[in-house]
């Protein structure tokens, strides 16, 4: 059931089409700048932006900023994610705990993370910790709920089968509960990763922690001649978002290749 030659073609042609669309958008941008439709004082031309982007890519500043952003994002995601899996599992497995705690979780989930940003700044200042806390907090609640649902969604036939096969304790959790919950956790994680990146940038923009967000702010404050840099940095954050989302989608496809939703997408037998 591997990909046929046909399948390869089918996978390549949309990629070519997408590249074409990107090229068209960039060309359109340049045309609008050249024709004067775009106000040059607030919207630099595509070529100026790209030249600045190339210059930035060769400078250490951009890479340091990117590293700071990635570090804050990854640490926050790892901490919030592991806590969510742990807490979500415990709540999912214990009905009493679930019923007792779920209203609190549902409430805290709805608190906009931005609302606690000032608090985090007061406590930690413009630091990595502040960023990590914000990301971890923002990721934890929705993912916890996702994990709870996943753990509780074990198919009754699967549950009976586990009993009949005398799967118990850790073996049952790792062998049955976790794989059953995996589709839920994967979806939650994919969303959390994207949300986490947004929160990281916000923590840098508003909270002043080092990273891409702060670089954008600095370039804006440096005046109109630094405008191409601002746009270049915004493009970099956009690309980072795309990379994160597609990386997690890819990971999901790999890990869940056996799941109904993925069966026709991925080559099997990994």
């Amino acid at each position: 059931m591997g990909p046929s030659s046909d399948g390869v073609e089918r996978r390549w042609s949309p990629i070519a089409a997408r590249l074409l669309v990107v090229a068209a958008v960039l060309a359109g941008w340049e045309y609008l700048s050249a024709s004067g439709s775009l106000d040059a004082s607030s919207f630099p031309s595509m070529t100026d932006t790209m030249a600045e982007l190339a210059r930035q890519l060769l400078s250490a500043d951009l890479w340091t900023a990117l590293w700071n952003t990635v570090r804050g994002w990854a640490t926050g995601l790892a901490i919030g994610g592991s806590l969510a899996v742990l807490v979500g599992t415990l709540l999912g497995l214990n009905r009493f705990a679930y019923l007792s705690v779920i209203p609190v979780v549902e409430f805290l989930k709805t608190v906009p993370v931005i609302a606690i940003l000032p608090l985090a700044i007061v406590v930690w200042g413009a630091t990595l910790q502040m960023k990590v806390f914000l990301v971890a907090f923002g990721v934890f609640w929705p993912l916890t709920i996702q994990v709870i649902y996943g753990v509780r969604a074990v198919d009754p036939v699967v549950r009976d089968t586990a009993v009949v096969l005398r799967l118990r304790g850790v073996r049952r959790f790792v062998g049955v509960t976790l794989p059953s919950a995996a589709p839920f956790i994967a979806t939650g994680l994919r969303v959390a990763a994207a949300v986490g990146l947004i929160l990281t940038i916000i923590a840098e923009l508003i909270g002043g922690a080092k990273g891409l967000g702060l670089s954008i702010l600095t370039s804006v404050n440096a005046g109109p001649q630094r405008l191409p840099a601002t746009y270049a940095l915004i493009l970099v954050t956009g690309v980072a978002g795309v990379v994160v989302t597609s990386a997690f989608a890819r990971l999901e496809r790999r890990v869940l290749h056996w799941h109904e939703s993925q069966r026709n997408l991925a080559p099997t037998g990994a």
């Binding site: 699967v158 009976d160 089968t161 096969l165 995996a182 056996w258 799941h259």
Partner: peptide, 24 residues
């Protein structure tokens, strides 16, 4: 069980499905 599509673990190969009770 009647419903083999649910009683067999889809995340395990045939060999590994059969191996479950043996591992236990």
């Amino acid at each position: 069980f009647q419903d083999y599509s649910r009683s067999l673990f889809p995340w395990l190969t045939v060999n590994r499905n059969v191996a479950v009770p043996l591992r236990v």
